[in-house]
Computed example of a mutant assay.
Amino acid sequence: MSRYKALSAELDPCERQLVERLRRLKDQGELTMRHLAAKTGYSAKSWERYLGGTSLPPREAVEALARITGADPVPLLALHEIAADTWDSRRARNVVEPRPATQEQEPEPEPEPEPEPVTLIGPTTPPASAPAPGRFPHIALTAGVVALAVAVLAALLLMLRLDDGAPQAAVAAPPSTAAASPSPSYSCRISRVDGRWSAGINQGRNDEIVYGATGADVAEAQCLLRRAGISPGGIDGMFGPLTLRAVKSFQQRSGLVVDGMLGPRSWKALRG
């Protein structure tokens, strides 16, 4: 059985129960992280996080593990749904809101001393003549236009500075994970052909297959093992740990050499 790190005490009971069930399924199927990556399409590093309790596995990963181990996915998916809610709630509580920066009060400027009156000695400069009555409206209109232009320009500059200072949201590109090619679908159509059992998948071939093989020959053997009352897991055409265990059990029951390889004698016994 694999050795796992102790789960964090912050995990919700439903999250802890989901991780422990996934660990048991992996151990019962004698699956390594590389087997999980090959059969489910999720990397070995991802499964280390899922089974370590540091990352919540996707719903599809839970379904894939249940499929390859022959387990019922319904209770696992129910636990996953509850665990997903508690996982999101805990992450929301851990978000720390930034504290507003305290504004330091600027010291009030000291009042400037009033200028002392100056006594002019000698002849004084005559006061400037007042503008002519006809020119005053034009001067006021020009001053108003200039003030309006300055205000508009200041507003535009302020908007440009705010746009430059605003933090730009970084667009994170989704990880380019290679889509796992879907496994071919096989169905068992057990029948007797010329006095021999056949699943109708590999056209009656009896080629030798060993652990790690894939394809129609493996699916044919899985169907015949299931007909013999020994479960090889799913009918997926992959000669994995569960199929290997079923082959050895069948060979031992049939009095054959228990080597885990499907050769001519094992095929003959399977086909009856």
Rank of each mutant, 00 (worst) to 15 (best):
Pro57Asp: 00
Gly240Val: 10
Ile209Asp: 10
Asn202Met: 13
Ser249Ala: 15
Gly53Glu: 00
Glu104Lys: 12
Arg67Gln: 15
Glu20Gln: 03
Lys39Tyr: 08
Ala221Leu: 10
Val218His: 11
Ala219Gly: 09
Ile121Leu: 10
Tyr186Cys: 11
Asp12Phe: 01
Leu51Ala: 06
Arg24Ala: 11
Glu220Pro: 12
Ile190Asn: 09
Met238Ser: 11
Ala228Trp: 10
Pro123Tyr: 07
Ala173Thr: 09
Arg135Ser: 12
Cys223Glu: 10
Tyr42Ser: 05
Gly212Leu: 07
Pro115Met: 03
Ala6Pro: 06
Leu244Phe: 06
Leu51Lys: 01
Val152Gln: 04
Gly195Lys: 11
Pro127Leu: 14
Gly195Glu: 14
Glu15Pro: 00
Leu31Gln: 05
Ala140Asp: 02
Gly240Leu: 06
Gly212Pro: 07
Pro127Ile: 13
Asp27Asn: 06
Gly272Val: 01
Val171Met: 06
Ala66Thr: 01
Leu224Val: 13
Arg23Gln: 05
Ala71Met: 01
Pro137Lys: 10
Arg91Asp: 03
Ala172Lys: 05
Gly240Asp: 12
Trp47Cys: 08
Thr119Glu: 11
Ala84Tyr: 00
Arg161Ala: 14
Leu224Glu: 09
Gly29Asp: 04
Thr214Gly: 11
Asp85Ile: 07
Ala173Val: 07
Cys223Trp: 09
Gln222Trp: 13
Glu112His: 04
Ser89Arg: 12
Ile201Ala: 13
Trp87Lys: 01
Leu120Pro: 05
Ile190His: 09
Arg91Asn: 11
Trp87His: 03
Ile82Ala: 15
Pro73Ser: 07
Gln168Leu: 09
Gly234Ser: 15
Ile209Lys: 09
Asp27Met: 02
Ala78Lys: 13
Asp236Gly: 08
Trp267Cys: 05
Ala199Gln: 12
Val247Gln: 04
Gln28Ala: 09
Arg99Phe: 01
Arg16Leu: 01
Glu114Phe: 00
Glu220Ala: 15
Ser254Cys: 04
Arg196Thr: 15
Gly255Ile: 04
Met1Ile: 13
Arg271Cys: 01
Ile121Val: 13
Leu242Ala: 08
Leu51Gln: 04
Ser191Cys: 06
Thr119Val: 15
Asp194Glu: 14
Thr142Ser: 07
Gln168Pro: 05
Gly237Ile: 12
Asp236Trp: 07
Ile201Arg: 13
Gly237Cys: 10
Leu56Asn: 00
Ala246His: 05
Pro117Ser: 07
Leu22Val: 02
Ala37Pro: 03
Ala170Lys: 01
Phe250Asp: 04
Leu11Ala: 07
Gln222Ala: 13
Gly237His: 11
Ala64Arg: 05
Glu106Ser: 02
Asp85Ser: 04
Ala66Val: 01
Leu225Asp: 06
Glu20Ser: 05
